[in-house]
Design a protein around this nucleic acid. Structure first.
Length: 531
DNA sequence: ATCTTGTTTC
């Protein structure tokens, strides 16, 4: 190339880069493809900078396989190529792909690069892959990257998401000269682990070393106090941030709404939502996703439909989280066909999309449909998680698919290496109990590695009642009474009622409500005797 | 080229 061809070409290059970036952000796949074709014919597709942009463009459009192809064919692939590929995967939620490319990089004998680490930690975090995440931490120590603020904030964040807030604190304290981002990571670590007071203390520490909290700091505090239901403290924080010159933004409001929804204050949540609107702020995908579950409890679909309408006109309906929240809302409100339409409309189906749809079928007695979807998940290699199995086991017990349920319960543990949780055992007790296999159900309870709770015994009790086994019924009732001596009547009735309804969603809800309202301390046996 | 706030299924 002579200087006459390089100068205009490099000018065009930056506008091309900008175009391809814009198309990626707007998910304009067809336009990007045209640009790509143009790059190929004009010979600039081989330029490292252009190729890297094409890789992130295709990842952003969800064309992960194609992105990988462009990446593999990159002519001059230096470390930045790997950074772009792995970074784009992690940023767009393709965590397994991110780790796979990282493994490939290791396999090719390339050294660990500091720019790669945050993306790989993020992927481990979201996959809840403790083993892999800790291995990366070891590599970080070996490479002496532990004073890199980007890496430390990612480590703190990862450990916090694992629930290992002590490890997060260790990494935080080992760093000298923490910056704003590192403080924020630790503050939200405490906030998200129900230690909002610790988070607040850290804000004071931060001020002492001369770092001013920013909107992210304030929002982390709001989320922390809102989640534990401390409305008074939330108001205090909002006042403090205003005095500090920060107005609550969409994230602040979404956190407030989220806290209210999780603490069963749905009416207040809608109130906060209206207040947000009157403050001239527009809800985004997170706000919508947060508010949708609150619509379910209003016994009709009106609110949900309204929000659905808003998400259509605001262009948020296509958002992955919004989609699955809408699907779930319609499912819970009994609009199965609406849920199905949304399911089929979703081209980028995730584990959550499938899980929500399977739960929908399971809770409406469409067991065959649920099994069909489960098989589809397996066939397409979709990641199955503990909720997938709660959903499919629920479907099996509702549909009387006893053998299949037992088979899947083993498959979950042996093939998918998913540890059986309390819910899974509860499903199995229900499954066996409904089939009249009461002794096996009792054996299942005895085999549980954790303490069976009220709902498990309640399920057994219900099954015994239906099948007329008074002996086991007494055993179950005794355990119930033992678990809740001062209030057994109340709880016993609730447990068996809910367990008989067979909806684990209601069970979970009840459990949370009881925990929240400390119902166990309320003496209430008067109405039990009248039933 | 990399990181930190809010969001879905129990």
């Amino acid at each position: 190339m002579n200087r006459f061809s390089t100068i205009p070409c490099s000018l065009r290059l930056s506008s091309y880069v900008e175009l391809i970036e814009t198309n990626g952000r707007d998910r304009l796949l067809s336009q990007g493809r045209k640009l790509h074709a143009h790059f190929v014919t004009s010979g600039i597709a081989r330029l490292t900078r252009i190729a890297a942009k094409l890789v992130s463009f295709y990842v952003e459009c969800g064309e992960i396989t194609y992105a990988k192809k462009v990446f593999d064919e990159m002519p001059k692939r230096d470390i930045s190529g790997w950074v772009v590929m792995i970074g784009a995967c992690s940023r767009n939620g393709y965590y397994q792909e991110s780790l796979n490319v990282f493994k490939q990089m290791n396999g090719e004998g390339l050294k660990l690069d500091a720019f790669i680490v945050p993306s790989v930690l993020k992927a481990s975090r979201d996959l809840l892959d403790q083993v892999f995440g800790k291995m990366i931490h070891c590599m970080v120590l070996k490479c002496s990257f532990e004073s890199d603020g980007f890496i430390v904030s990612s480590l703190i964040d990862m450990y916090s998401k694992f629930g290992e807030v002590e490890n997060a604190r260790k990494v935080f304290s080992d760093l000298s000269g923490q910056d704003l981002v590192v403080f924020n990571a630790m503050i939200s670590g405490y906030a998200n682990n129900r230690q909002a007071d610790e988070a607040l203390k850290l804000v004071e520490d931060m001020k002492l070393v001369g770092i001013k909290p920013d909107i992210i700091t304030w929002n982390a505090l709001i989320a922390g106090f809102s989640h534990i239901g401390d409305d008074g403290k939330v108001s205090e924080i909002v006042e403090m941030m205003c005095l500090d010159g920060h107005k609550p933004d969409v994230v602040s409001w979404t956190s407030i709404i989220s806290g209210l929804v999780h603490n069963f204050q749905n009416a207040k949540a809608f109130g906060a939502f209206k207040l947000m609107l009157s403050n001239g702020l527009y809800p985004n995908s997170a706000t919508i996703t947060t508010l949708l579950p609150a619509c379910i409890t209003f016994a009709n679909v009106k609110y949900g439909k309204e929000i659905h309408g808003y998400s259509v006109v605001s262009g948020l309906e296509g958002h992955g989280f919004v989609r699955s929240a809408l699907l779930d809302m319609y499912g819970k409100c009994g609009f199965i066909s609406e849920a199905m339409i949304l399911f089929h409309k979703t081209t980028k189906k995730t584990t959550v999309t499938f899980n929500s749809m399977i739960f929908c079928y399971a809770n409406h007695g469409l067991s065959e449909k649920a099994v069909e979807l489960f098989e589809q998940m397996e066939a397409t290699g979709e990641r199955l998680d503990h909720l997938t199995f709660t959903a499919i086991l629920t479907a099996c017990s509702h549909g009387g698919l006893t053998d299949l349920g037992q088979e899947l319960f083993l498959l979950m543990q042996n093939k998918y290496r998913i540890e059986a949780r309390l819910e899974h055992y509860a499903c199995m007790v229900d499954l066996l109990g409904r089939a009249g296999k009461l002794v096996e159900a009792y054996e299942m309870i005895k085999a549980m590695p954790m303490e069976p709770d009220l709902f498990v015994w309640g399920t057994l009790l219900g099954a015994c009642r239906n099948h007329g086994n008074m002996e086991l019924a007494r055993v179950a009732a005794e355990h119930l009474a033992e678990l809740e001596p001062e209030n057994s009547g109340n709880r016993l009735l609730l447990s068996s009622l809910y367990a008989n309804a067979g909806s684990w969603e209601s069970v979970v809800r009840m459990k949370k409500m009881i925990k929240k309202k400390k119902l166990s301390r309320v003496p209430g046996s008067s109405w039990v005797n009248t039933v």
